[in-house]
Design a protein around this nucleic acid. Structure first.
Lengths: 107, 107
DNA sequence: ACATATCATCGTAATATTGCAATATTACTT
DNA sequence: AAGTAATATTGCAATATTACGATGATATGT
């Protein structure tokens, strides 16, 4: 037991859940908000801004990357990245669709 | 270690994260979708519909309840509940605000 | 009252997530 | 080539989540 039974749900349900999981940590919300406030790409000050250790920030960034929400160059010194506009719009639409198809015809 | 450091984030970040956490499981997404498809309140067939055990469904329902998304009577036989419209609209707005305040001025 | 149906709670096992120290890697600089 | 700065990876401990069997509580039907 203990593991989520993804196989009994449909792809839409699983996708929505896995995107929600990325947003389900305040550090990742904060990271996305901070990146979006910058004028251009963000380069290195996340560790100071967020207040978590460098490995922890790196892990959170990786979770965000895995669903395709960040783009940029991920090699070498001065890694620079920003929000992937198209993917962002796609996920916004996914959530919007979920919220609006739920009709609350009751009580 | 191991626990999320909620104290270093602001209330908005924490609230968004905790709502996302509720949506971060396909069973809870499926439950919300199923309830919304019904004409009125839902009464008892969730266990058969979702395909998880009764205690597990009960736990998931509790997670959804905790953020105020369900209303109805929660005790005794033939428990009946449905989606709390006002809360639903509030959370929709919360996510909408998050998605739109993120401006992607880069790359 | 008794059985039955429905939902909640408890206890527990399995798995996942969070966070950091230590270390490794990578690329730039001198 | 050696040093340095930035990011990634590894390994581990602490905590959280997921799932279910067993049991408990409450309401309805006979």
């Amino acid at each position: 037991m203990g593991a989520t039974k993804t196989e009994i749900f449909n792809p839409t349900q699983n996708e929505l859940a896995s995107v929600a999981k990325v947003l389900a940590h305040p550090a990742r919300v904060a990271i996305l908000q901070y990146i979006s406030k910058q004028e251009g790409c963000i380069c290195n000050d996340l560790v100071d801004v967020i207040g978590l250790s460098q490995p922890t920030i790196s892990q959170h960034l990786n979770e965000i990357k895995k669903i395709g929400l960040l783009k940029g160059t991920f090699e070498g010194k001065n890694l620079c990245y920003c929000i992937h506009k198209e993917k962002w719009a796609e996920l916004q639409q996914l959530f919007h669709a979920f919220f609006t198809t739920i009709n609350q015809n009751c009580c």
